[in-house]
């Protein structure tokens, strides 16, 4: 574990979230650790099925049955300075409910389905404010208008009574952000909030989130599969694959000098690393969650797979020069292995 310089806002340690399915136990999150400092933006990156969304839901206490947080710690520093272990409190307890929406806000991928279609946006924003801040109807309304204005929602006061289906995708996501931030939480969890939006709207929303982060002084955990987004906003990056952290560290390091073959593969999907003008997808598909390969989870798709080692022994997540960590046999001595045995593409 990396020694934090100051007490972090959130410290996730060896988090494990498992799903009991008819086919067997699915270890969606299997020993994930990372920290989020105050006012910091941490991006969790990975393909579908990497467990990044389940990690976000675990923090928020929103894992649905048959899933359950089965182990680890999630130490979260509350507004009053005390620290709670989110993994130790039942998700439907009053303690957790007092944290959800007040200390931690969350926005989701699909702004349309994340809002109730038959309730006005005003009603949906106000209820959190009334619940956590004890405001009356009128005060909550004012606060909701404030929140909408902060997220750049035009004509907020007049449009409190509109329904989500009357708004564009970008405006709906702004409503979601206003709703999540109405009680000014110290941590915002954003689960792929821009994936369902078009490129221009995507950029506007990212810009808005960064501005609000500055204004409200909050930390953001941003879940995405898009490394382009990561480059724009991340302070630190956690790369996940099959429920485990493959590589973590400062954004500049991960993007500039990716160490794990998986991170490099992800980068090749968005940037022309070889300089031959080609973008490359990672070959193969993410293994079935019930059929985890022995050894390194990425070994079935890795271009630098070392037979006899990678497909038999699981690598440890090891610290490499201070803040960076990587889970790969290539780096198991802290130094890159000479990759003579690596198989050609």
């Amino acid at each position: 574990m990396r020694a934090p310089t100051a007490a972090p806002l959130l410290e996730v340690d060896n988090l494990r979230t498992h799903f009991t399915t008819p086919g067997g136990l699915v270890k969606s999150v299997d020993g994930v650790s990372f920290t989020v400092g105050h006012q910091e933006t941490v991006c969790i990156v990975g393909e579908s099925g990497s467990g990044k969304s389940i990690t976000a839901r675990s923090i928020m206490g929103l894992v649905r049955r048959p899933g359950r947080v089965v182990g680890g710690r999630m130490n979260f520093r509350l507004r009053d300075g005390s620290t709670v272990d989110l993994a130790a409190i039942p998700p439907d307890s009053a303690t957790y409910r007092a944290i959800r929406g007040r200390e931690i806000g969350m926005i989701f991928q699909e702004p349309m389905s994340a809002l109730s279609p038959v309730h006005t946006i005003g009603s949906q924003i106000e209820e959190g404010i009334r619940l956590h801040l004890g405001f009356g109807a009128r005060a909550a309304r004012e606060r909701a208008v404030d929140a909408l204005e902060k997220v750049g929602f035009p004509g907020a006061r007049q449009r409190l009574n509109t329904y989500p289906f009357q708004l564009s995708g970008g405006l709906r996501q702004r409503v979601c952000i206003a709703m999540a931030l109405a009680c000014e939480p110290s941590l915002l969890i954003a689960d792929e909030p821009t994936t369902a939006l078009d490129v221009t709207t995507q950029a506007n929303i990212l810009e808005l989130l960064l501005r609000l982060q500055g204004e409200l002084g909050m930390a953001i955990v941003f879940i995405t599969h898009d490394l382009g987004v990561v480059a724009e906003i991340a302070d630190r990056v956690v790369v996940m694959y099959l429920g485990q952290v493959m590589e973590a560290g400062p954004a500049s390091g991960i993007l500039g000098h990716p160490r794990h073959p998986y991170t490099r593969g992800l980068l090749r999907c968005v940037a022309d690393i070889e300089g031959d003008g080609l973008l490359r997808a990672i070959p193969g598909i993410v293994p079935h969650p019930l059929a985890r390969p022995p050894g390194c989870p990425f070994s079935t798709r890795c271009e630098e797979m070392m037979p006899g080692l990678c497909d038999t022994t699981a690598p440890e997540l090891l610290a490499i020069n201070g803040e960076s960590r990587v889970r790969c046999h290539l780096w198991s001595s802290g130094q890159p292995h000479v990759t003579e045995g690596a198989v050609h593409g």
Partner: peptide
Amino acid sequence: TAAAPAPAV
């Protein structure tokens, strides 16, 4: 296994 991506299942 190394030459072709192994069956994921």
